[in-house]
Design a protein around this nucleic acid. Structure first.
Lengths: 225, 225
DNA sequence: TTTTATTGATAGTATTACTATTATCTTTGC
DNA sequence: GCAAAGATAATAGTAATACTATCAATAAAA
């Protein structure tokens, strides 16, 4: 899998950036360090000025890559879900049994992420932390409908639809495949957040993972396993 | 129920505000109109200056009630969950059968809200729309741990714990009661959002409601019904 | 009627979120 | 090896945001 990633370029909607950060050293540095800074101070306190200082570069240089921090966050999340889609594909590709396949997929999208050494400038483990705390904010804006039309969320929806198809394969009669899939993906992020911050309203802790909860859920909800 | 609400004052943690908005005409106006303005332009574009213009009052007067718009949003969401807790209590109080009781509670917390005529200055239907699009943002900040310690999310957690207890009553052996409850409350808000904006990744529409999805879910997940 | 509390008006500061311009530095093409 | 092109840095500047401070006007309470 490592070799595959080295050759495959994660695709992000071109309208999200002004200049592709993958095409220059500065661009890659912007991505690499924005992940670290976003994790350290959060989206709300993140500014291009602070990022510029951190990478010893100029605020105005960053603006040549991204219109604003919301677009940068859209880039990071698109990258994440695109990477997730590859992971999903390769991890489930060789599994025959539909239910085992679905379980593997659910595991992939709900588990805690370790850094993928194949991508030098992106720390997936930290990116995952950012997605847990910040992703929903990229959706929940007044501009969501326009941005959805522009295709900014295509990869995210594609990941969900992959899960939907696996659910349908297991139980074609289950009437809420889409809601179940979108619930699991969003819900897993939320359960991770609760485990870290609001521990009294989740069963997840060091021993029980969101993955355990959601595997148990689909096992009882779906038939024909 | 209407009469009860007229007499019961919704309790909000005193540390959220500088001056209790319920104690003055201006305060009530701030709450009433902030709900409308927040719905119209969203949390991100909402400012105290704009609110001041809308209520023909001064920006600095609003700052005497709330430190910033985040605190105002905390107030609105605390109010909402407090109101929800009353609704839950009165709606389930007289139901004997544990599963019927749980179903009623799930219905209350997942359904679309109509305006409650008992509260003159608060439009619950619009407040519900705001909670759907903005509530998660009030949790997902870098200050969540401090604010949680201050007790800003007590009422929210209390609503979830009420559902947890009902789940345990129906099926004491189910091992994920807390995660299921927090998932349903957060997930229902998310499904409402998807129904309105990302329709391809939810089964919810004019005919199928988030309530249908979650009632179906608990019906299959829990035993001893 | 005096005191107190509340609100309004005005002004001012620091930060944010950018845009514009010009200089410098680095490639690459020949 | 040099010129042209492209990318980056430095500086400056604007408008909006997110406040704080002060003081006057007004309404309510003692």
């Amino acid at each position: 899998m490592r070799d595959l990633f080295t050759n495959i370029k994660i695709q992000v909607n071109e309208k999200i950036y002004l200049k592709d950060p993958e095409t220059s050293i500065l661009g890659k540095k912007i991505i690499e360090e924005s992940i670290l800074l976003m994790d350290a101070i959060g989206f709300d306190h993140f500014t291009f000025k602070k990022l510029g200082e951190k990478i010893s570069s100029n605020e105005s240089s960053i603006y040549r890559y991204f219109e604003n921090k919301h677009k940068l966050m859209l880039y990071l999340s698109s990258w994440y879900w695109s990477w997730m889609e590859y992971k999903l594909f390769f991890a489930t590709n060789n599994i025959e049994d539909p239910f085992e396949k679905l379980k593997k997929a659910i595991t992939i999208v709900t588990e805690k992420i370790e850094d993928d050494e194949a991508t030098k400038h992106i720390n997936e483990s930290i990116l995952n932390k950012i997605i847990i705390s910040e992703f929903t904010k990229t959706l929940q804006t007044k501009e969501v409908d326009e941005e959805n039309k522009e295709g900014f969320f295509l990869i995210y929806k594609s990941v969900i639809n992959r899960i939907v198809n696996l659910i349908i394969e297991v139980d074609p009669d289950y009437p809420f495949a889409k809601s179940l899939a979108s619930n699991i993906i969003e819900g897993a992020l939320h359960q991770h957040f609760l485990r870290d911050h609001l521990t009294t309203i989740t069963n997840c802790n060091e021993n029980i993972s969101p993955t355990d909860f959601y595997i148990n859920l689909i096992t009882t909800v779906l038939k024909n396993k």
